[in-house]
Design a protein around this nucleic acid. Sequence first.
DNA 1: CTGGCTGCAAATCTTTTGCATCCTG
DNA 2: CAGGATGCAAAAGATTTGCAGCCAG
Lengths: 131, 131
Amino acid sequence: MTPQRMAIMDYLDGNTQHPSAAEVYEAVLRKFPTMSFATVYNTLRILKERGLLAELSLDPAKKRFDANPAPHHHLICVNCRKILDVMRPFDLSLPQDDRHRFRILGNHVDFYGICPRCASPEPAAKPGKGR
Amino acid sequence: MTPQRMAIMDYLDGNTQHPSAAEVYEAVLRKFPTMSFATVYNTLRILKERGLLAELSLDPAKKRFDANPAPHHHLICVNCRKILDVMRPFDLSLPQDDRHRFRILGNHVDFYGICPRCASPEPAAKPGKGR
DNA sequence: CTGGCTGCAAATCTTTTGCATCCTG
DNA sequence: CAGGATGCAAAAGATTTGCAGCCAG
């Protein structure tokens, strides 16, 4: 655990914004002006491999990172791509017929919709590119 | 509907492989050797905008495309990234408390696990890069 | 000294864009 | 001829890799 890694974990810990690697980089840069992209990416990969954070595939444009260790689901605005956590558990056992002989490890639910800001007559946020 | 677009739809229609844009390109290239990346990407975007196909965020490394119009879920091998369809519906109404005043449009469940091939002692597939 | 980590640059991969051309009506 | 589609090349954005230098054990 180097100072850089701690800074990255500090930034992600308790952060519910699901930041992208670029956002992590910008944030940590304030503390470590010499921090490089490569270190951020390498560190995020290593932390992910060690199970300290999760990489989310919710945004096709880029990876987003989540340091919340509790299993949870997500609510995504299809317009501005804002992502909120849904901590409520769901009972989602996959029936044998649908398992295709996979060993099931877990599941994840995405709810998608329009957030209040984007639903308002004068949308506050531009649409994300949503790649 | 141009011949190129029909070729792309033909390739995707009934295809349960959830191919990436590059895979679509390679496949359609056999029929249209002059087909360019740009046309594939532009066409995929247009078909998506018209609701003829869905763009999946299941693979952080790249977009995957699915022409199956029925709402359904996915079962993903975390090792080789193989993706299977789960046509069974789930009752997943999000309680008011968790809606954060979003207008909910839908949901999608990913089940993840290890497929039989990757679980076998001599794994047949290399791990995907999983970006 | 050795191994791991950092920082920089270059490379890679995926996707998008600009633009000239072509086809269709 | 006007609009839309294609093909090519270049650009853009995200991520990875190669490599030299640095630091700690």
